[in-house]
């Protein structure tokens, strides 16, 4: 799956040469969490990792394995109890890219192939995943500003999004009043937390996505994934591209057919474009 995502992202790298990111889902266990931090390199990394270990111990979590890969620190942790306070504590300790039983987010500066060279993603086997290429407009091209975004505080939920949510602050204030935390001002993180809250309240992914089309203003095409499901929503203005192909073996969704075709070189695909204001979900 790592190899497929790399090929698809390479196919649309023209849309964003600055950074590339992956959300990858592999098999997991209910009492184990995978945490992926961005720690940088050298002395800076050592300080971050020490701090991570300290807070893990403080929260009663057992570090089973920890490995530095590229600029990241991948931790396998046993933890019982509420996930949200634990996730927030870890998120305050260091730059936490993802937390989940199955999810790991890897994102950094550079192209899909450059990130692969640093993080060895092509070998990764998995069930489903998301990818994103980014054109950065803010001051620095920082890894933590890259996509995909994790739904901060929630296990296993990730998002990639193309577009702009124009009622961002309205929803951000509402969610913050309910006690949810945000680590960026990015509207993609907002959608992730918005959906994660719905899911944790017991909504199905289908219902959460349907609600999002009512609640989110602006232009958007996004993909969301959980431990078991993947889904999309597309705004009513149909301003952002999305095209998909579905076979007995897989479902692949991308901004452009050229990305889908990377999985099937030389073949003419039977693709479809989701209609404005629609959603779709698949489970494994």
């Amino acid at each position: 799956m790592g190899r497929d995502l790399i090929a698809m992202l390479d196919g649309c790298q023209h849309r964003g040469p600055d950074s590339t990111g992956f959300a990858l889902y592999a098999d997991g266990a209910d009492d184990l969490y995978r945490l992926r931090f961005y720690v940088g390199e050298g002395a800076e990394a050592a300080v971050s990792i020490a701090r991570i270990k300290e807070i893990l111990a403080d929260k009663g979590a057992e570090l089973l394995a920890g490995e530095q890969v590229g600029g990241s620190f991948a931790a396998s942790v046993r933890h019982a109890g509420d996930v949200r306070p634990f996730a927030y504590a870890m998120e305050h300790a260091a730059k936490l890219f993802s937390l989940g039983h199955r999810l790991e987010i890897v994102k950094d500066e550079g192209t899909a192939h450059e990130v692969d060279a640093r993080y060895h993603l092509s070998a990764i086997q998995g069930t489903h995943g998301l990818g994103h290429v980014r054109l950065a407009t803010e001051s620095a091209v920082r890894p933590e500003a890259a996509h995909p975004f994790w739904a901060t505080g929630f296990s296993d939920i990730a998002i990639v999004h193309n577009g702009q949510i124009t009622n961002y602050w309205k929803w951000r204030r509402r969610l913050e009043k309910l006690g949810f935390e945000f680590r960026t001002d990015n509207d993609s993180e907002l959608i992730a937390v918005y959906l994660a809250k719905k899911l944790s309240d017991g909504a199905s992914l289908k219902q959460a996505l349907t609600d999002s089309i009512e609640d989110m203003d602006g232009t958007f095409s996004f993909l969301v994934s959980t431990g078991n499901e993947i889904g999309y929503a597309k705004d009513r203005l149909a301003a952002k591209p999305m095209v998909m192909v579905e076979t007995d073996q897989l479902v692949a969704i991308a901004s452009e057919e050229v990305s889908l075709n990377r999985l099937f070189p030389g073949q003419a695909l039977s693709t479809r474009e989701p209609l404005p204001g629609t959603i779709g979900t698949w489970s494994r």
Partner: peptide, 12 residues
């Protein structure tokens, strides 16, 4: 051209 990413393709 509905975003910077579309614009790249238009310029090309």
């Amino acid at each position: 051209v509905l975003g910077a990413d579309d614009l790249v393709i238009k310029i090309e």
